[in-house]
Design a protein around this nucleic acid. Sequence first.
DNA 1: GCTCCTCCCATTGTATACAACCTAGCGAGA
DNA 2: TCTCGCTAGGTTGTATACAATGGGAGGAGC
Lengths: 226, 226
Amino acid sequence: MKKGERKSGSSRVFETLRRSILEGEYAPNARLIEEQLAERLRVSRTPIRQALTMLEAEGLVEIEPNKGAAVRSFSVDDVWEIYDLRAVLEGHAARRAATRIGRDELDRLWGLAREMEGKDRDEFLSHEEEIRWLVGANGEFHGIVAAAGRNPRLEQLIQRTVQVPLVFKAFYWYTPHEHVISNHYHRQIAGALEAGDAERAEIVMREHVYEGRDFVIRALREDMDA
Amino acid sequence: MKKGERKSGSSRVFETLRRSILEGEYAPNARLIEEQLAERLRVSRTPIRQALTMLEAEGLVEIEPNKGAAVRSFSVDDVWEIYDLRAVLEGHAARRAATRIGRDELDRLWGLAREMEGKDRDEFLSHEEEIRWLVGANGEFHGIVAAAGRNPRLEQLIQRTVQVPLVFKAFYWYTPHEHVISNHYHRQIAGALEAGDAERAEIVMREHVYEGRDFVIRALREDMDA
DNA sequence: GCTCCTCCCATTGTATACAACCTAGCGAGA
DNA sequence: TCTCGCTAGGTTGTATACAATGGGAGGAGC
């Protein structure tokens, strides 16, 4: 028996649009016109509308009644808010995870931490591919911690809070220095979790998030000045 | 048709269904059949489907592909999860609110605290009406604190986390003793916020939430035994 | 009696037709 | 020139028709 859930058209549309938005294919504030999307994705407007409704709930698009949907834009204040939430939510997840995480999850965390440092990874990737890989690996790392908190609602909230277009863009701006810092925190987090030290896990995770926040905000300002 | 009603059909349907579910009009796990709802609410299936999609995002209904929507049910574990989140989210909101809340909001908090204690309230209400009033007042109290955290995303997360059918039911189970405790915490919270004591505001709010959690869990177990 | 198979119907998923609405653009009058 | 109002085109909101899915009743075979 396959684990596969039968994908209805609307959820395929939903996932497609979500990816496109997260990867920045649609610019912030770009209008999403139902008929255009329908034609592009070879479905009628019905599943498009359903997907847009779901995307609005996820906070990725904004729908104004009788005016339509647009890709949500994120101001510097929004970024600040988001990271404030991430610190609280992911910190709490880390705290819970410290007493709940399993051996296999810890192994995966250490493995990811090593790989993100460039070790155990000998394939040649283009810059674009490497970024994409890093986004995935980093996402998986944080996802494992979130899941190890063993509170599905918390996990979902984190998922929704983290998934914004900027996260993808941010990795383009990272310099080797930022990666070193980030990797350092990943090891610290894995260490605290392995030690079962809930207090330290939360603190370190929060610091990691704040570090990311400060960098992204700095980068955003520079980007705006340029 | 009355003038000034700008709301589209689907959002009216959404609000109607939401209220009904929150107030327990539809039992947990009850199937929500589109055509029945359509007939009852005098609209076609289209806005019904849209509303159901939104309700699923809010976590109030569960939609299984090709099988339809059902009112989501909440296990004891779910309740535990929810209150765990509430403690973190509302605690954080209270912390933030301590340095951001305004005079008028504080006044309203004190006013609500007094009213919930039965003071300044001389109308005669039936038990049903009183419960309904208390749910509203308590919701407003917590809503003000959440809003005073000045992070709209946090506020929204709290809203979605708090709004589950059980919250409404729980008030039916409260005895005078529980009300005394709850009111005591409300005063403590307002006091900490007025003093600008962020640390204490967070701690007291968390205690308040945990108090509620323990009571609801106890009540749920008794309810299941009976 | 038990299992399996098939068909049927209730219900959901999608497409399309139509109504309501918003906005841009033009022109008339002050 | 500026403002107001009107019309037209484009887009969203809703209704309806049709296709696809799933589950259950009932019968055939053992």
